[in-house]
């Protein structure tokens, strides 16, 4: 554990709280992508299967349980009490609904889940169920934010807490990269190309967002994407 990873984890933890605080406070999930949240739920469920058979630390265990339960709560809220405020039209991916006129997650399944799973079958740290699901979760996490970013792209502007949520998740990823660099130079056998490549891809996806978020904060102006 180093300060970079700890700060990253704390920002990740705060991101859930920000999103939940916002949804409860405004009694609305407008501007939040249900697809991204479901993808994150799949990510955590697949990756933290090891809760049942391996123990790293109390810290890891508590965080894993928190990540799963917080995301499950957010998804549950979006499907139940805040359902009426869900902006489904802006949470559509290209290709959604084109499959025999139904199956809304078609785009997510075809463009995100299936490719990640196929990649996990090819590049993993061991050809066994747990390792494949673990690699799948790493790849899926890298792109899980895409529906949320697409949604922002469509609406052009975001509500302050939703932007703060995206900022926290992006910053957490950025800190993880610094954590890997630190670990690489301080630990003897630390070598995780699979995680590094996915993590860098994941962080790059936030670059555009960070740029416009920073502009808005600097100028004290409203966040607005071009186009």
């Amino acid at each position: 554990m180093n300060i970079f990873r700890l700060s990253g984890d704390m920002l990740h933890l705060i991101s859930f709280l920000v999103l939940m605080y916002r949804m409860r406070g405004q009694r609305s999930c407008r501007g939040v992508s249900l697809k991204s949240q479901i993808l994150f739920l799949i990510v955590f469920c697949c990756r933290y299967l090891d809760l049942f058979f391996s123990f790293v630390s109390l810290y890891n265990t508590m965080m894993k349980i928190f990540f799963i339960s917080a995301t499950a709560t957010i998804v549950y809220w979006m499907l139940t009490k805040y359902r009426s405020s869900y902006d489904m039209d802006n949470d559509k991916l290209h290709g959604d609904g084109s499959f025999m006129g139904h199956l809304p997650p078609h785009g997510v399944l075809g463009y995100i889940i299936v490719p990640c799973f196929l990649l996990a079958l090819i590049w993993n740290e061991g050809f066994e169920a747990f390792e494949i699901l673990w690699a799948f979760s790493i790849y899926l996490e890298a792109v899980a934010i895409l529906p949320q970013l697409f949604m922002l792209q469509k609406t052009k502007e975001g509500e302050a807490f939703t932007l703060l949520y995206i900022f926290c998740v992006g910053a957490y990823r950025g800190l993880y990269i610094i954590n890997w660099i630190y670990r690489y130079f301080t630990e003897k056998h630390y070598w995780q190309p699979l995680v590094w490549v996915s993590g860098v891809v994941q962080t790059l996806l936030y670059a555009d967002f960070f740029y416009y978020y920073w502009i808005a904060l600097r100028d004290g102006a409203k966040f607005q994407l071009p186009g």
Binding site: D50, S54, V56, N60, M63, F67, Y176, N179
Partner: peptide, 10 residues
Amino acid sequence: KSLLESHDEL
């Protein structure tokens, strides 16, 4: 490499 070493991050 043991599972513990490889999967020790969140």
